[in-house]
Design a protein around this nucleic acid. Structure first.
Lengths: 214, 214
DNA sequence: ACCTGAACACCGTTCAAGT
DNA sequence: ACCTGAACACCGTTCAAGT
């Protein structure tokens, strides 16, 4: 009995599976080959190089993100849902997140996400230039938040809390004369990364909504 | 005549030099060794591993960023100057930017930057919790903007414009019935990445200033 | 047409050996 | 104490050879 023939979709699906979680910071072609039961270099028959493969994997990761806005009438609430969904998938697939962070892939799910976001910003009543710049600001905040949090997020729950605790302790241990603000505020830092993102997203959307109002 | 002895500072300075620009996406220990006239593995006598070295290089990259606020009385203007300085150095050193994007190094220049930023947010009149969350939002937007723009920013001027032009053309070529917003707004996208960052930063600071007001 | 095998030019890292 | 040499276990990628 022979193996099912290799296709672009089979390869992307397997690579997407391997890109889960942060314990596997990047997918190697040798690992991917053995997951597919195929020689590592067989992948080059279907993708020009590894970057093209990872770009396809990254786009698969964006499947359904635009649809997070479905059924939400309020544009601000819909934009919040889309950006939270984007952040969730970037945290789950850090290797794909790195590819998306390099610039737009212009692949189908990414295009759908962009189209949806632009439409929601227009529904808010913004001028065209504000729509475009607001879109970039939302993406920049969400991607930044995701890449910053990805490493710690990949840790098991216990280690994650321990890491945050150690960071706070480092700040608390500083000379309070030289670093008065840090020494005082340290206990409140790194308490809840997801909350920080929600706060920042709210700041951006508040400003955008205000620019839209007459 | 014998070579000057290897020190932590010599190594960091040489690695910092090699980390300039985006044509060199990452510094290899073999390249670093030959730049120093030393066997690649000699570096392990001074750093535990490559990550510790790159963490030191990343902090060197932050030298002077906090001082971008010097002499600026208005907290909003000072915060703008600091974040623009941070973005500039992250764009110039993408390899270091990737290390900083993984989480806080808690090294001296980073600590100085954090302390300064917290102080400026407090000067704005914000409550402690808003100071902490506002700080994270500013860093997330700035890091996100920098990693997204770094790849294109590293291209020579002509190629950079050509790349943006190609991206716009890709969006313009889409089916206008399925993607009406993109098709219409494409000409205004990717016009000036630095301007997009300034806009997003303004949105965050506007919201923060409003929260500070009574 | 599609995949394999062998090879190339790289990586970070370890450890015994030199001085 | 500090550095070198050799080796290990990896990478992505190319290209001729197999079927």
């Amino acid at each position: 009995m022979t193996r099912a023939p290799l296709t672009v979709d089979t390869i992307v699906a397997a690579a997407w599976e391997l890109s889960h979680g942060g314990d596997a910071p990047s997918v190697s072609l040798r690992d991917l080959g053995s997951a597919l039961g195929v020689h590592p270099t067989a992948i080059y028959r279907h993708f020009r190089d590894k970057h093209e493969l990872m770009s396809a994997v990254a786009d698969r990761t964006l499947q359904g993100v635009a649809e997070a806005a479905d059924g939400i009438a309020d544009p601000v609430a819909a934009l919040t849902a889309v950006m939270q969904a984007l952040r969730a998938t970037l945290l789950a697939h850090p290797a794909a997140a790195r590819v998306l962070a390099e610039g737009p892939t212009r692949r189908s799910n990414e295009v759908a996400l962009t189209e949806r976001t632009l439409g929601l910003l227009r529904a808010l009543g913004l001028a065209d230039q504000d729509v475009v710049e607001g879109y970039h600001a939302l993406i920049e905040l969400t991607v930044g938040s995701s890449v910053i949090d990805a490493t710690v997020h990949a840790l098991p729950d216990g280690e994650r809390e321990e890491t945050y605790r150690r960071w706070r302790a480092d700040y608390l241990g500083l000379d309070a004369d030289r670093y008065p603000h840090l020494a005082e505020l340290a206990p409140q830092m790194y308490g809840h990364a997801a909350g920080d993102f929600t706060f920042g997203l709210g700041l951006l959307l508040d400003s955008l909504a205000r620019r839209a109002a007459p």
